[in-house]
Design a binder for these strands. Structure first.
Length: 544
RNA sequence: GACUCGAUAGCUCAGCUGGUAGAGCAAUACACUUUUAAUGUAUGGGUCCUGGGUUCGAGCCCCAGUCGAGUCACCA
């Protein structure tokens, strides 16, 4: 009953729209009446006033500038361009809908281009075909005067090619779907493909991402590719039988990483809560619980500085697989990244900032102390803290007394080695002090079974053979506590529940986190994280 | 957090030595029935980021602030 009534209402509305548009014919005078300025808190620009005038003028013809009815779209712009060259007869009666992006009026004939989700298509409108009767107001007033760049319209007609060879829709009917009352930046491209008057101010582009997506070619494509990165990775994991899960974002202890958290408060429980900085400890609890492969695309939050590669909220994919080690994880990762690169860019060879990078597996594997030896000549394997400190100083690094061996080695690698690894390289076997959640190396207990993957000099992934000895894990947390007392504000908290879980027993497990934003930056050749986030964090706009 | 650069019309940008605020696109009006950065003619459009100061006079010089970009620091 309810459904039937709704369906009936819809088709009536459809008829009503056609009726008012094609038969309404009030004489239109164009001026910006002051009535619709009443109650506006903001001074309107001249162009906004003209557009509100056009909106009222459309209403004065009896037309609804914001009709409710479903639009009977038959083709996307891209489909028309695809089909026409081989089968033009199939396009004798099409209906396309989209946003008006350009308008060229040439007296009794006009061109406009419509943009839909697939791209642009030109439409051609001829006065006497649109208005075969005496009354030419639909063309002279509605199309020529009240239709603006940015408006949504639909047109019906047949597809043809113009004298200059452009596939176009020869419109015999059109109707307004939604009026735009704010002028859009008009970005033009010339015959040589040069862009003119680009909408390029980064502040405006990020704050008004909707405008950026409309007028800047290629922006949509970055986000389509971003989604492709996620969906390809998800497919690979699902194919392997791993389970996608969700774990808490509000956590009583922000664990699993070294970072300053955002803090919030739960009113009913009257307790502080933290926004997660990682989900590692929760996913490992699930391995304890008997799942053998779990993963999550997790929004993490870190209350730290913002720059070209850091946004306060960002996305990490973490995966944990039981009975595997970090060698297995490297094998899996390199194959996966090759597959994703091909899926997203069409090739395993990608170009990043003018550099050619091969994402073809296998990737190089270099122990961190070997990397330091190669790039500094210093052999730090098994060296006591004082010797490492002296080495760091000799390399011109700032070292403080509270920095342990691990931190200093990390510093040396970061400053002197990291940027050399442009081609994908697994840096392995980090000192145990830097990796409190990672299992000791099976052959050298000063090291851990850990790797970080570097591509284009940036860290993309971080993985371990996970530490599953509950007593050693407790001891490592206690080491962190000491670091914290020494003044390291990033040292980890002790998560007692996580330790309790490990005490029940966790199978040998390998885990990895991949920075999804940075992976997307790499695969879309973007040097700023803001270009791969739809809505990057910004300071609030001033409101007056 | 430090340093550098920037903010002028809807968009992109000029603006000289401190002397009435400029261009292109967009807009408005007219012309133009296959154009495409359409074209031609005419016209309108400004809190020069904000607040102080110097000066007869500030878009421009000085001070403070806001917002953004870049570099560095921080950041597994």
């Amino acid at each position: 009953m309810k459904r039937a009534r709704r369906a009936g209402g819809k088709s009536n509305a459809n008829r009503a729209v056609f009726h008012v548009i094609f038969f309404g014919s009030a004489k239109i005078t164009h001026h910006a009446a002051p009535t619709y300025l009443c109650g506006m808190e903001r001074q309107l620009s001249e162009q906004e006033q003209f557009r509100r005038g056009a909106l009222e003028a459309l209403r004065a013809t009896g037309m609804n500038p914001f009709p409710a009815a479903e639009v009977p779209v038959s083709h996307l712009a891209s489909q028309i361009k695809e089909v026409y060259p081989t089968n033009p007869e199939a396009l004798a009666d099409v209906c396309v809908a989209g946003r008006v992006m350009t308008k060229r009026i040439m007296g009794k004939a006009s061109f406009a281009s419509l943009m839909d989700s697939s791209g642009r298509i030109q439409i051609y409108v001829n006065r006497d075909e649109l208005c075969p009767e005496e009354d030419k107001s639909l063309y002279n007033d509605v199309f020529k005067k009240h239709l603006d760049i940015g408006d949504f319209i639909a047109v019906k007609g047949h597809v043809f090619t113009t004298q200059t060879g452009e596939i176009s829709v020869h419109a015999t009917q059109f109707w307004v779907l939604s009026k735009s009352i704010r002028p859009l930046p008009v970005v033009k491209k010339d015959a040589e493909g040069n862009t003119h008057d680009a909408f390029s101010d980064p502040e405006l582009r990020y704050r008004q991402r909707y405008v950026d997506l409309i007028v800047n070619e290629g922006v949509k494509d970055i986000f389509i590719k971003r989604t492709k990165v996620f969906s390809t990775m998800r497919d690979i994991f699902n194919r392997a039988g791993h389970l996608e899960v969700e774990t808490p974002i509000l956590q009583p202890i922000a664990g699993g990483a070294a970072a300053r958290p955002f803090m919030t408060h739960h009113n009913a429980l009257d307790i502080p809560l933290y926004l997660r900085i990682a989900n590692e400890l929760y996913l490992k609890r699930l391995i304890v619980g008997g799942f053998e492969g779990v993963y999550e695309f997790a929004k993490d939050f870190r209350n730290e500085g913002m720059d070209r590669t850091h946004n306060p909220e960002f996305t990490i994919m973490e995966i944990y697989v039981a009975y595997k080690d970090y060698h297995w994880m490297m094998d899996m990762t390199e194959k996966m990244l090759e597959e994703i690169a091909i899926a997203v860019t069409g090739s395993a060879d990608i170009s990043v900032g003018g550099k050619n990078i091969s994402m073809k597996a296998p990737f190089a594997r270099v122990p961190i102390l070997e990397a330091i030896k190669t790039h500094t000549g210093l052999d730090l394997l098994g060296k006591p803290e004082e010797e490492v400190r002296a080495a760091a100083k000799s390399l011109g690094l700032q070292v403080t007394p509270e920095m342990g061996t691990g931190k200093m080695i990390d510093e040396i690698f970061g400053q002197k080695c990291e940027h050399h690894y442009v081609q994908p390289t697994f840096i392995t076997d980090y000192p145990v002090e830097m990796s409190p959640l990672c299992k000791r190396h099976r052959e050298d207990d000063r090291l851990t079974e850990r790797f970080e993957l570097f591509i284009n000099g940036n860290e993309i992934a971080n993985a371990y053979s996970e530490l599953n000895d509950p007593l050693e894990q407790r001891a490592r947390f206690e080491e962190q506590l000491k670091l914290s007392e020494k003044g390291d504000d990033e040292a980890m908290f002790i998560d007692q529940d996580f330790l309790r879980a490990l005490e029940y027993g966790m199978p040998p497990t390998s885990g990895m986190g991949i920075g999804m934003d940075r992976l997307t930056m790499l695969l879309t050749d973007q040097s700023s994280i803001q270009e791969v986030l739809l809505f990057p964090q910004m300071r609030p706009e001033k409101t007056d």
